[in-house]
Write a protein that binds this DNA or RNA. Structure first.
Lengths: 258, 258
DNA sequence: CAAAGTTTATTTGTCGTACAAATATAGCAT
DNA sequence: ATGCTATATTTGTACGACAAATAAACTTTG
């Protein structure tokens, strides 16, 4: 029946949700600074007209984001939130939708291409030397492939050169997703390599060389080619293949053990 | 005293934190699918050896991320989390550190340069036509500046062309931050324009033209120049200026009204 | 026998109370 | 004035109770 689907229950927004929103608004609109004290829980609950437990469920969310910290007797104090704390917890291939998985993979490529500029602006000789060391330590597998660890270490350093903490954290957060995709979709990646003959993609070594004596534009083009292996994953055709190749076993809640 | 600062209290990790982590591990390691039922709160609390209130504070966090949904009698069911739900709540200039503010601004530029490739691959004629319409509706202010709204609308469409939902959401989330920076640091931006003579940056109109008849590389270079106005914000010199120019009034918790 | 209506049982959402642990503050002693 | 002690306050945790919603079982009716 249509009415079933269209019915506006809006029972989805619970008291806790409303309190959370009110608290955020309150903090935003008062000109609080990090370190400032908030009213204690009893006062807040009374002012909001809810039980302390409800208030605490809302506060728990803000605490997770690092927006508030609390200690007995001292009370609650405001802090600078970590904007990535939420994402960090659920960025796991076992929890995410396949759409998000691919979108994140795609975003990583977007960032790595886009940050070439930052890398060129901010790189120091010491950092380039470090990159070179990392490359020298790498052990090549077949087909110009590196181990996930080597791959990760090199790219991590690139992120660090940007000096952008949010970007650096994103690498840490995204990395497990890449490792997962590389491991679980290797057939698709290999198939693609055979299909295209895998035209010589620049290696990490090549990238360092360009970083030392090339131009930004050359570096960006090389980076794009270096990452090109993953491009086709975002075509609709391959999206469907990934969906088909992936099936998880179901567990009824009754069988679930805690 | 040294011992005060070095003391490992670790009283920072509360029971709720541990329960949250256990729940996440439990969900990740069981092969749950979206829609599957979780054990009810009573069972979970008993299995974890904590009070229901503690469990619920942990669950509240997972609910915020969209990982679990619950309805009376039906119980709790697993869902696909929204990886950006946490960030969305605290991405506000009034809550963030200035460091994060600049890092996010920088990340936006990285993404907009990096996504040029995606845009070229995915653009349709209809979308380019839409972009053109948007540009035609724009009303120029002085100095080749557009209103925040016009600026936002054009760039929003660019994000949409990537067809990447995470990227599209990021635009929505980041946008208030840009608007804020544009409004509050206009002196610094203007000063820079005078200093450099503001060498003709490509306009939105120019970008659309390149999108219609240019190459990816040209588009990327133009985009970089289009955004160049903001580059200097990330220099240390300007970072300090921003810090100096920004001061918020403090409120003691006793004066705070709820 | 089938369909519709009714009752029951279960589960989440909310409220309230109580107490332990930590610690800032005030009071006391030296 | 300084150091110790007692007190009061505030968060963290536990427990119990009930309302609201609703799935499931049961009853009635055609």
């Amino acid at each position: 029946m249509v009415s079933d689907n269209l019915k506006i229950t809006d029972q989805t927004t619970t008291l806790v949700d409303k309190v959370e929103e009110k608290l955020l608004d309150y903090i935003k609109e008062s000109n609080f600074m990090p370190g400032d004290s908030l009213p204690n829980e009893k006062e807040l609950a009374e002012a909001l007209g809810v039980a302390r437990s409800v208030l605490r469920e809302a506060l728990s969310r803000l605490r997770m984001m690092g927006l508030i910290k609390s200690r007995t007797k001292k009370g609650m104090t405001l802090a600078e939130p970590n904007i990535l704390n939420g994402m960090r917890r659920v960025m796991d291939p076992r929890l995410m939708s396949k759409g998000d998985l691919l979108d994140v993979l795609n975003l990583r490529i977007i960032i790595e291409i886009g940050m070439c500029n930052s890398i060129f602006i901010n790189k120091t000789d010491a950092e380039v030397a470090e990159l070179e060391e990392i490359v020298n330590r790498e052990t090549a597998l077949q087909d110009n492939m590196r181990s996930v660890e080597d791959e990760s270490m090199f790219h991590k350093k690139l992120y660090e050169i940007t000096k952008n903490n949010v970007v650096i954290q994103l690498h840490q957060i995204f990395n497990p997703v890449f490792a997962y995709v590389k491991e679980h979709y290797s057939e698709i990646l290999n198939e693609y390599k055979k299909l295209t003959g895998d035209p010589a993609r620049p290696t990490h070594h090549d990238l360092v060389d360009i970083l030392k004596s090339g131009t930004v534009e050359e570096f960006q083009v090389a980076m794009k080619k270096h990452l090109s292996l993953y491009f086709h994953l975002f075509d609709n055709e391959y999206r469907q293949k990934m969906n088909a190749s992936k099936k998880k076993s179901r567990l009824k809640s009754s069988e679930a053990k805690v």
